[in-house]
Measured scan of single mutants.
Amino acid sequence: TEDEKKIQELLKRANGDVSKAEKLAQSQGNEELARRLREYANK
């Protein structure tokens, strides 16, 4: 999905570090994506 692409892109930029990727999403003002990242990471 589009969200998964965004999540994978963020994870790439954060070198696979979920908490960093989450902070990136939040810094972009994207709380929804940050929440999805957390769920994605907890799979």
Rank of each mutant, 00 (worst) to 15 (best):
S19I: 13
Q8H: 10
I7S: 02
A21V: 02
G29Y: 09
E9G: 04
Q8D: 06
Q8F: 10
L33H: 01
E9Q: 08
E32L: 06
D3M: 15
S27R: 08
N42P: 05
K23R: 10
E2G: 09
N15I: 01
Q28G: 07
L33P: 00
K5F: 11
K6G: 07
E31V: 09
R36W: 10
G16W: 15
K5W: 14
Y40K: 03
A41Q: 07
R36T: 06
L10E: 02
A41P: 03
E4I: 14
A21E: 00
N42I: 11
R13L: 15
N30G: 15
E39F: 03
S27K: 09
L10Y: 12
R38Y: 04
R36S: 07
R38L: 06
A21C: 00
K43L: 13
E4N: 10
V18N: 02
L10S: 02
K5T: 08
G29M: 04
Q28P: 02
E4C: 14
Q8A: 10
N42E: 12
G29D: 04
K12H: 10
N15S: 06
K5M: 12
E39H: 04
L24A: 05
K43W: 09
R36V: 08
K20V: 14
E32Q: 07
K12L: 12
D3L: 15
R13T: 08
R36F: 08
K23H: 08
T1Q: 11
T1R: 12
E22P: 00
L37F: 04
Y40H: 05
K20M: 13
E32T: 06
K23G: 06
E2F: 13
A21W: 02
G29S: 03
E4K: 07
E31W: 15
L10K: 00
A21F: 01
K20Q: 10
K43C: 10
Q28L: 14
R13Y: 11
Q28W: 11
E4R: 08
E2A: 11
E39T: 04
E32F: 05
L11M: 06
A14F: 15
G29W: 04
E32V: 05
N30R: 05
N15W: 07
A21H: 00
K43M: 11
N42T: 12
L37S: 00
K43G: 08
Q28D: 13
L11Q: 00
D3Y: 15
K5I: 12
S27I: 11
E32W: 07
V18Q: 03
R38Q: 06
N30D: 15
Y40C: 14
E9P: 00
Q28V: 08
D3H: 09
L37C: 03
K20I: 14
A14K: 00
S19H: 13
K12C: 14
A21L: 04
E9R: 04
L37Q: 00
I7C: 06
E2K: 07
R13P: 01
A21Y: 01
D17H: 03
D17V: 04
E4S: 08
K43A: 11
E9L: 06
E2R: 08
L37K: 00
E31D: 13
D3A: 10
L10N: 01
V18I: 13
L11P: 01
A21D: 00
Y40T: 03
V18K: 03
S19E: 13
R38N: 04
S27H: 09
A34V: 09
S27L: 15
E22I: 15
R38I: 06
E9T: 05
L24Y: 09
N15E: 08
R38E: 03
D3R: 06
Q26K: 12
K43N: 11
K5G: 09
K6N: 10
G16T: 01
L33Y: 02
L37N: 00
I7Y: 05
Y40R: 04
A34S: 04
T1P: 12
D17G: 01
L24E: 08
K6R: 11
K6A: 15
R35S: 07
A34M: 06
E4V: 10
A25V: 02
S27C: 07
K43R: 13
Q8I: 14
R35H: 09
S19M: 11
L10F: 12
A21P: 00
D3F: 15
D17A: 02
R13F: 10
A34N: 02
L11E: 01
L24V: 05
Q26D: 04
Q8S: 06
D17E: 03
D17P: 00
E39N: 05
E9V: 05
R36L: 15
Q8T: 07
L33C: 04
K6L: 15
T1I: 13
L10P: 00
N30I: 03
N42Q: 13
A21S: 01
A41L: 13
E2L: 12
R38K: 07
G16F: 09
L11H: 00
D17S: 07
Q26F: 10
Q8P: 02
G16L: 03
T1V: 12
L33I: 06
A41H: 08
E4G: 07
A41K: 08
L24Q: 05
A14E: 03
E31P: 11
R35W: 07
K23Y: 08
K5V: 11
A25M: 03
A34D: 01
L11R: 00
E22V: 15
D3Q: 09
L24T: 04
A41V: 13
K6D: 14
L37E: 02
A34G: 05
K23N: 06
R13E: 14
E39C: 09
A41G: 07
N30P: 00
L33W: 05
A34P: 01
L24G: 01
K20D: 03
N42S: 12
A21K: 00
K43H: 11
E9S: 05
Q8E: 11
N42V: 11
A14L: 05
N30M: 14
E39P: 01
D3W: 15
Q28M: 15
A34Q: 03
K20T: 08
L33N: 01
R38P: 00
L24S: 03
E9M: 07
V18D: 01
R13W: 15
T1A: 13
L11A: 01
E22R: 03
Y40Q: 05
A14Q: 03
A25D: 01
R36N: 06
L10A: 07
A14G: 02
E32Y: 07
K6W: 14
Q26P: 00
